[in-house]
Amino acid sequence: MASQGTKRSYEQMETDGERQNATEIRASVGKMIDGIGRFYIQMCTELKLSDYEGRLIQNSLTIERMVLSAFDERRNKYLEEHPSAGKDPKKTGGPIYKRVDRKWMRELVLYDKEEIRRIWRQANNGDDATAGLTHMMIWHSNLNDTTYQRTRALVRTGMDPRMCSLMQGSTLPRRSGAAGAAVKGVGTMVMELIRMIKRGINDRNFWRGENGRKTRSAYERMCNILKGKFQTAAQRAMMDQVRESRNPGNAEIEDLIFLARSALILRGSVAHKSCLPACVYGPAVASGYDFEKEGYSLVGIDPFKLLQNSQVYSLIRPNENPAHKSQLVWMACNSAAFEDLRVLSFIRGTKVSPRGKLSTRGVQIASNENMDAMESSTLELRSRYWAIRTRSGGNTNQQRASAGQISVQPAFSVQRNLPFDKPTIMAAFTGNTEGRTSDMRAEIIRMMEGAKPEEMSFQGRGVFELSDERAANPIVPSFDMSNEGSYFFGDNAEEYDN
């Protein structure tokens, strides 16, 4: 993207840094990872977990959730003011799984939030270390993106479920800051804005008074975040219109849905970061690795190297396929839920299948599930090659597409044709070009129609051997075009429920 120079890199967003050079960025990201790792080690000690239990991804998720809940100030305040039966607002906890007599047992633990905050700050040299908290939120978000298709949420806001490739980060909490905003897809931002506008339509006082002023500035800020994701002048001009509207209503909703559809071809720039579970960072720190000293990046080879040398386990339900569970977590670790499966298959070195073909449910185990038949197995999170994460949407291309997802959002900077089903997408653009945004709409449609099938995206960008740390010898991959490109292809993934 041309304006790259004016933006802070995501590592800076990730670490609240002012302008830093590459070495400083690597050190501050490393410091953040160190903090998460030290916190995780301490929690495993508190909970008396064995090494194996500490490497269980379900335990990692519970521990991450506990610290996120302990620092969720708004919710904590709300819980104190609106006490609900049987919930102690000062405590947080969740299921911890232990191996007892050759069987997995679930144990519900409860801790004072104050105590968890103390352990977290102690692991982070006394700081609140917001960057580390956001990092864990993005890992949870990436896992949700890989596990669930947001059909219901899309339909509720009037969008087409086939636009799911635009929904990265749709389950990120509001408090995820600049680093969170960077990884949100165009569809996620559109959905947040539509929800806001709908509230304004239904509630006369939404934009009024002292609160209304705050609401208005939040609305304009979200519009600017979305505008910054678009790469064409016409899309940005249309966002200006939406932002400046005196009284946002149905016309703005129409414009936003139009823009979301246009992003299936004229893709937005959305950041991709490899955020790993805390149970990967903990053992690495415990083994003596100093992330701050060595430096770390979320968008280069580092996460690949770390996963190459990590042992992570997962509980497996009786009829689940461990290899499929591994694929789910591998995609989440690489922030690749909406990437082209052919690119992923090449990088991973084994075939990556669409969601609907995987015999696996989510990673988390519900409290009512029976533990008797639970097994555990090693997650295979290694890769054959590594590639640089991208934040450009890439230019655009036609490809055989599917009944489910009709476009992709690249996660890796790797040369390819970008699949999208042009006739299906263009069919949504018939007729409606009147109104105050008509010239911009016409211009956007013209650009979409001009998108050429034979153009290559990320020209000359390749993948790298894991021994090639400096990215000196790019390998331009070859793809098996007979395979499906979309992950949520004609899909039956479970729906995400809060």
Rank of each mutant, 00 (worst) to 15 (best):
S3T: 11
S3H: 13
Q4E: 11
K7I: 03
R8T: 01
Y10C: 09
D16F: 03
R19N: 03
R19G: 09
N21K: 15
N21P: 10
A22F: 02
T23S: 15
E24C: 05
I25A: 02
A27H: 14
A27N: 07
S28D: 00
M32H: 04
I33L: 15
I33W: 05
I36K: 04
I36Q: 09
Y40R: 13
I41E: 10
C44S: 03
C44Y: 05
C44A: 12
T45H: 07
L47Q: 04
K48D: 11
K48S: 11
L49G: 04
S50C: 14
S50R: 09
S50L: 05
D51R: 11
G54Q: 13
R55C: 12
R55K: 15
L56Y: 06
L56H: 12
I57P: 09
Q58L: 05
N59W: 04
S60T: 14
L61V: 15
T62P: 06
I63F: 05
R65A: 06
V67W: 06
V67I: 15
V67D: 05
V67S: 11
L68W: 08
S69W: 10
A70W: 08
A70L: 01
D72I: 03
E73I: 14
R74M: 12
R75K: 15
E80K: 08
E81S: 09
E81I: 13
H82T: 10
H82P: 00
S84E: 00
S84F: 00
A85Y: 14
K87A: 01
K87N: 06
K87W: 04
D88C: 15
K90A: 09
K91C: 06
R102G: 14
R102V: 01
R102A: 11
K103S: 10
W104T: 04
M105W: 06
R106F: 04
V109M: 15
L110V: 12
K113W: 08
E115V: 06
I116Q: 07
I119S: 03
W120D: 07
W120A: 10
W120G: 08
R121Q: 07
A123C: 14
G126N: 13
A131H: 14
A131N: 11
L133A: 08
L133P: 02
T134D: 06
H135A: 09
H140L: 09
N144M: 14
N144F: 03
D145H: 12
Q149F: 06
R150A: 05
R152Y: 05
R152F: 07
L154V: 14
V155M: 07
R156M: 05
G158I: 04
G158E: 03
G158V: 03
M159V: 08
P161E: 00
R162K: 12
M163F: 15
M167S: 07
M167F: 02
M167P: 02
M167T: 09
Q168C: 07
Q168T: 05
S170P: 06
P173Y: 06
R174N: 12
R174G: 11
S176A: 15
G177P: 06
G177W: 03
A178C: 03
G180I: 03
A181S: 11
A181Y: 07
A181R: 07
A182Y: 11
V183K: 05
K184P: 07
K184E: 11
V186P: 11
V186Q: 15
V190M: 13
E192F: 04
R195M: 07
R195H: 09
G200L: 06
I201M: 12
R204D: 07
N205S: 13
N205K: 11
N205M: 06
F206R: 03
W207P: 00
W207V: 07
W207Q: 09
G209I: 00
N211D: 11
N211Q: 13
G212W: 09
R213F: 06
R213S: 05
K214E: 05
T215M: 03
E220H: 10
R221M: 08
M222V: 03
N224M: 14
L226I: 10
K227H: 09
G228P: 11
F230I: 07
Q231P: 06
T232W: 03
T232F: 02
M239V: 15
D240Y: 07
R246M: 03
G249F: 05
N250F: 07
N250L: 07
N250A: 13
N250V: 10
E252P: 06
I253A: 09
D255L: 04
F258H: 10
S262C: 11
L264P: 08
L266C: 09
G268Y: 02
G268R: 01
S269Y: 04
S269N: 08
A271D: 09
A271S: 13
K273T: 07
K273C: 03
S274T: 15
Y281L: 05
P283M: 14
A286G: 15
A286I: 08
S287M: 11
G288R: 15
F291V: 09
F291D: 08
E294S: 14
G295Q: 06
G295C: 11
S297V: 06
S297W: 08
S297N: 05
L298Y: 04
I301N: 05
D302I: 01
Q308M: 14
Q308H: 15
Q308R: 02
S310G: 12
S310C: 15
Y313E: 04
S314K: 02
L315C: 12
P318K: 14
P318C: 11
N319S: 12
E320I: 05
P322F: 06
Q327I: 07
L328E: 01
L328V: 14
L328R: 06
A332F: 06
C333S: 15
S335Y: 07
V343I: 15
V343H: 00
S345E: 09
S345R: 05
F346L: 14
G349K: 07
R355M: 05
K357H: 13
S359K: 15
R361D: 03
R361N: 03
I365P: 01
I365K: 02
N368Y: 01
N368Q: 13
E369W: 05
N370R: 07
N370Y: 04
M371D: 01
A373L: 11
S376H: 12
S377V: 14
S377W: 02
L379G: 03
E380P: 02
E380F: 06
R384S: 13
Y385T: 06
W386K: 05
A387V: 10
I388R: 03
T390L: 01
T390A: 07
S392G: 12
G393N: 04
G393D: 01
G393S: 15
N395Y: 13
N397E: 00
Q398G: 01
Q399M: 04
Q399P: 13
R400H: 14
R400N: 04
A401S: 10
A403E: 02
I406Y: 09
S407Q: 12
V408F: 07
V408N: 10
Q409C: 15
Q409E: 01
P410H: 06
A411C: 15
S413R: 12
Q415F: 12
N417V: 09
L418D: 00
P419M: 12
F420S: 15
F420Q: 02
D421N: 14
D421E: 00
I425S: 02
M426P: 02
A427F: 00
A427V: 09
A428S: 12
G431Q: 14
T433K: 04
T433L: 15
G435R: 10
G435V: 05
R436A: 01
R436L: 06
T437H: 07
T437S: 15
S438Y: 07
I444P: 04
I445Q: 07
I445D: 02
R446T: 13
E449I: 03
G450D: 11
G450W: 06
A451N: 14
K452C: 04
K452G: 09
E454V: 14
E454G: 14
E455R: 11
M456Q: 13
M456D: 00
Q459I: 02
Q459D: 02
Q459T: 11
G460Y: 00
G460I: 00
R461H: 02
G462F: 09
V463E: 12
F464H: 14
D468A: 02
D468Y: 03
E469F: 00
A471F: 00
A471N: 02
A472K: 09
P474S: 06
I475T: 10
V476N: 00
P477Q: 00
S478N: 00
D480G: 02
M481V: 11
S482V: 00
S482F: 03
S482N: 15
N483M: 13
E484R: 00
S486V: 00
S486C: 09
S486H: 02
S486M: 06
D491L: 03
N492G: 04
Y496W: 15
